[in-house]
Amino acid sequence: MSTARARRHRRSREAALTVTVLFAAKPESWADYAAPLRAAFAEEGLDAALVTEAAPETVDYIVYAPSSGLEDFHPFTRLKAVLNLWAGVEDVVGNPTLTVPLARMVDDAGLTQGMVEWVTGHVLRHHLGMDRHILGQDGVWRRGAPPLATERRVTILGLGALGAACGQALARLGFPVTGWSRSPKRIEGIDARSGADGLAAALARADILVLLLPLTTETENLVDAARLAELPEGAVLINPGRGALIDDTALLAALDAGHLAHATLDVFRTEPLPPEHPFWAHPKVTVTPHIASETRPASAARVIAANIRRAEAGAPLHHLVDRARGY
């Protein structure tokens, strides 16, 4: 019997666990998530009533996106946990009515793979100077090959699951990768730094800087004029993390002054990015519409179902948010 069949057989002999799970996200997301969640619940042996509406006092778990509009958790008197559909929790972590455990979306294989592909693609774009040839189809024979990856230093700010995965992927391509996080970490293939001195050192060696930090009170505007000045002349900034990590005015000034060569931005303080925002027309800025990665229903459903199963079995939830740290 295969491992998967044996697991299903074992679970079929266990008592089914009956829970009510409220799906609280934009209505259009329901069509994408309903079937994958039900399939994942069945695989985990959960007899779960998955609903989009329910009397609050009957709900055990909430699968949640801040875009749902749900803000008051007080009425959910039986609530055991909220499972965020997104990796970022800045829009809900400070909600005073949310007192039950909050888990964020981590270890979603689809989310991680999507981010690795986007970051690797844009790092290679700038490393290889693709724009010079793609946009310069004007009959001019432009000589000069780019340096090898071993000669282009990449720094990643944020060494969580996404940052670590992106850093290791780039290291496998030969890039010298420096990473920075608030707390010390050891990650194979990455020169991991922490603390104020570590941040300065990481910035100083960033020919290409990638931002994958969570947004907290400590990281908001982290990349300001002073820290942009610590980057090497001609550096490139890539931000698929959170828009408010960057001081927009300082970034534009650094680009206009020629200190930075380019900024590729996927996230912004206001989304969609207003048409009048100067990023759109700036020749040294590439705007992408928050597409670096997203939660994939099939893989995310498995993460959520496994976490609920753990909770129902009395085990601690995975990927719990530390309220004090904000992620």
Rank of each mutant, 00 (worst) to 15 (best):
M105C: 08
I190D: 00
R153G: 05
R125C: 02
P147V: 11
E151Q: 13
G144F: 15
A81Q: 06
N84G: 12
V140L: 15
L173F: 15
D91P: 05
E151R: 15
F175W: 03
G167N: 03
T112E: 14
M115V: 03
I156P: 11
L159S: 02
L148V: 13
L173Q: 05
T99Y: 02
G129W: 09
W180E: 07
T155W: 04
G158Y: 04
A171H: 04
E117V: 06
R182T: 08
A200S: 14
D207C: 01
A192V: 01
G195E: 09
A149L: 01
A103T: 11
N84T: 11
A206H: 05
N84K: 06
N95S: 10
F175M: 10
P147N: 07
T112C: 07
P147Q: 15
L98E: 11
V89P: 06
P96K: 11
A145W: 07
V89T: 13
P176C: 06
P96H: 10
M130Q: 07
V154L: 08
A81E: 04
L111W: 07
L111Q: 15
Q113Y: 04
L199T: 12
H122N: 15
L128E: 14
A171I: 00
G121S: 08
R152Y: 03
A109I: 14
N84L: 11
R172G: 00
A202Q: 09
L199W: 09
L79I: 09
R152K: 10
T99E: 09
D91E: 13
E90C: 04
P96A: 13
A87R: 08
A165I: 02
V177H: 00
W180R: 02
D107G: 13
R143P: 01
P101Q: 01
H122A: 04
V177C: 01
L102V: 04
A161K: 12
M105T: 07
A169Q: 00
F76C: 05
V92P: 12
G144W: 08
G144R: 14
I134T: 14
R193P: 08
E117W: 08
D197N: 12
L102T: 05
D108A: 07
L199K: 12
A171F: 00
A164Q: 12
V100A: 08
D207F: 01
G198T: 11
N84Y: 08
T120R: 04
P146M: 10
A149G: 10
V123G: 06
V92L: 15
A196M: 01
L170S: 00
Q168G: 01
A200N: 10
